[in-house]
Amino acid sequence: MYREEVVLENKTGLHARPASMFVKEASTYKSDINLIKEDQKYNAKSIMGLLSMGAAKGDVLTIEAEGEDEKEAVNSLIEFIKNLKE
């Protein structure tokens, strides 16, 4: 199990296009990946999970992964969130 924290800085948060791009990125990894917001877990490979999470600018998220590529997955998703512009 590998986990790391990140703060959402972009305007849209994890909604709309950013959310679907995030799911696509997460789905390229074999590990089980979860996003944790306020102790609630959401499946990072589920567009519905992410949309119902409603993460907005300023939220602190934890990304945790378990599996053969867990470290790679978490690092790249953290990077993805930091690079969100819209």
């Binding site: 679907s20 799911v23 959401y42 499946n43 490979k45 589920s46 567009i47 519905m48 999970g49 119902s52």
Partner: peptide, 8 residues
């Protein structure tokens, strides 16, 4: 994507 959605 919705049809394949794990949460759903």
């Amino acid at each position: 994507m919705m049809l394949e959605d794990p949460e759903f």
